[in-house]
Every structure is written in structure tokens, then in C-alpha cells.
Amino acid sequence: MIGFFAAISAVLSWTFACSIWRRESEKLLPRQINIYKNVLASIFFLPVVLTITWFSDVFSIIVLMISGIIGISIGDTLYINSLKIIGTRKTLSFEALTPLIATTLGTFSIDEIYPQKVWIGSLIVSFSLFMIVRQNTFQKEDSKQINILGILCALGSVLCAVLAALLSRIILISSTLTPLQTTEIRLLSASIFLFLIFKKDFLNLLNNRSITKQNHSNLILSTLLGTNFGILFQQMVFKFLPIGIGWTLLSLSPVFALFISKREGDEINKLTIFYSFLSFIGVAITLS
């Protein structure tokens, strides 16, 4: 049950944070938002550093650092860039693939054996999420207008997220590191990586007088929700649940995003409600 509630908490945190990041991406570069939130998030959790015995399990820490760079530095930058280019709904449509990708990757890479019901549930969730997104984007936008860069960013962010999650899962089940400790290690490595590459962008952001106090407040709130609590809850999920089941739960963002759909100009119709209900049936089958 801990894994289940952690997954729902992570989804809620990400959903509201993504809404804020999309608005702020109209004024800031995606990489600026990513480095801002990760540096700030690592500072918030900085006291956790004192609880980590850095030289006792060097291999695990190195793997988590790689996970942070892949999932947070690269993956989140691609994700925010995708939000800016093709919007929240289309970006989330590609995230609908994560349950199937994660289940497949977990099976072939770390020998997690899933019963047939998990595959069926993952397939139902992926299908339902895609149809939810389809109801809210393709009706409004010309589907013939394909932005290749946005699609590549969305696909790249999905692959980075699943690979990073797999690395985290391996360490969480094979070492004594806690979800909170693994969260801070990943955040620190991601922050250092981003700062070294985009140092100029970060300094320009701090010196940018056009960024208002409201912008900073929004970024701080979204950092606490989507980065600190979001990643912490995610790590708890991968501590207590197999990666395939965990990602099936974590992929419910489009369903929860319906609660903020009016603010983003989306309409909810009967089919959207039906597919939302169907996605929960898929989750129920997976967890049964």
C-alpha cells in the first residue's frame, strides 16, 4: 500500500508542477527552468547529505548519479522542452507508452516476472491514457501539423525516465540507501551536471530583472511539488513496487490533469470520462 499511495502522491505533485512549468516556459528556456528547479531542490534536501556514507557503497552512488543525469538533467530538459513545443496533452500522450516500456524493460533487464494480468492492465492503461489525450488535443489542433522536434523531445524524455527509473530500482532493492537518500544523490548529480553545461543560462536567469517575484514563487512551488516531493514519492514507488507496476500507476498524470483542464483550455467530454474510468479499471487489474 505504501507504493500505491506514493504513486498517487507523485502523480498529483507532477500534474500541478507541470502546469506551472508550462506557463513559465513561455518566458524562460526549458533548460533554465530545469537547472533552477534542480539546484533549488537539491538545496532543500541538502541536510540529507550528512546521512549518506559516501564511501561505503561507491558503486550504488555512481549508478544513482548516472540515473540522476539521465532522468533529471537530460530527461526533464527534454520533457519541459516538449511541453513548450507541443503542449501538455500531446507530451503526456507519449508518456502513455511508459507502462508497456517499463514492464518490458523490467522483464528483460532485471528478470521481474509479471503475471498476465499486469500486461493486460498496463495495455489497458496505456490505451486509455492515449485516448484521453487524443480527446483533448486532436479535436482542437490540426493533426497533420507534426512538430518533429517536439515528438523527439517527448519520446526522448520517456526513454530517459524509464531507464533512470530502472537504475534507481536496481539500487533501491540491492543497497541500504533510503528513498530520501537516493533522491538527494540524483538531484545533486543532476544539478552539478546542468550547472557545468548551462552555467551561463543559470546566471542569466538570476540576473534577469524581467523575472518577477511571482515567477520565482511559481518556480519555488513547482520545485517543491514536482521535484522534491515528486521524485521522493517516485523513489518510494520503485522501492516497494516492481518497475512495471510502478510506472503503470505513475502514468496516470493525464487523468489527474483533467482537474486542471479548464485552466489550460481543454474540454472534458463523455469519452474522456469513459477512458478515465477505463484507466482505473486497468490499474485495478494490474494490482489485483
Rank of each mutant, 00 (worst) to 15 (best):
I2F: 11
F5V: 08
A7G: 06
A7I: 07
I8S: 03
I8H: 06
A10H: 05
S13E: 02
C18Q: 15
S19F: 14
S19E: 07
W21C: 01
E26K: 14
L28H: 11
L29G: 04
L29N: 13
P30Y: 03
Q32M: 10
N38H: 15
V39M: 11
L40A: 15
I43R: 09
F44D: 08
L46A: 15
L46W: 08
P47C: 02
V48A: 08
T51N: 12
T53W: 13
S56E: 15
I62N: 02
M65S: 15
M65H: 07
S67A: 13
S73W: 04
I74W: 01
I74L: 07
L78N: 06
I80A: 01
N81F: 12
S82I: 00
L83M: 07
I85P: 02
K90L: 15
K90S: 05
T91H: 06
L92C: 01
S93Y: 05
A96P: 03
A96H: 01
A96R: 00
L97S: 10
T98S: 13
T103H: 06
T104N: 00
L105Q: 01
L105K: 03
F108V: 14
I113Y: 09
Q116D: 12
L123D: 03
F127R: 03
F127E: 00
L129P: 00
F130P: 05
M131P: 00
I132M: 08
V133D: 00
R134H: 09
T137K: 07
F138S: 01
E141V: 06
E141A: 07
D142A: 09
D142Q: 04
K144H: 10
I146Y: 02
N147F: 12
I148M: 13
L149T: 14
I151H: 00
L152I: 13
A154F: 09
A154S: 14
G156D: 08
V158K: 07
A161D: 12
A165V: 01
I170H: 06
I173P: 00
S174D: 07
S175D: 10
Q181N: 02
T182D: 02
I185N: 06
R186V: 02
L188M: 11
S191Q: 00
F195R: 03
L196V: 08
I197D: 10
K199S: 13
K200Q: 11
K200H: 08
N207E: 12
S210G: 06
H216W: 12
H216V: 13
L219N: 03
L221F: 15
S222E: 00
L224C: 14
G226N: 10
T227P: 03
N228E: 08
N228W: 05
G230N: 08
G230E: 05
I231E: 04
F233H: 01
F233L: 04
Q235N: 14
M236C: 11
V237L: 09
P242T: 09
I243V: 11
G244C: 01
G246Q: 02
W247C: 01
T248V: 03
L249I: 05
L249N: 09
L250Q: 00
L252S: 06
V255G: 05
F256N: 03
L258G: 06
F259W: 10
D266R: 13
T272S: 14
I273V: 15
Y275H: 14
S276M: 10
S276C: 09
L278W: 07
S279Q: 13
T286G: 12
T286W: 04
L287I: 12
S288V: 12
S288F: 15
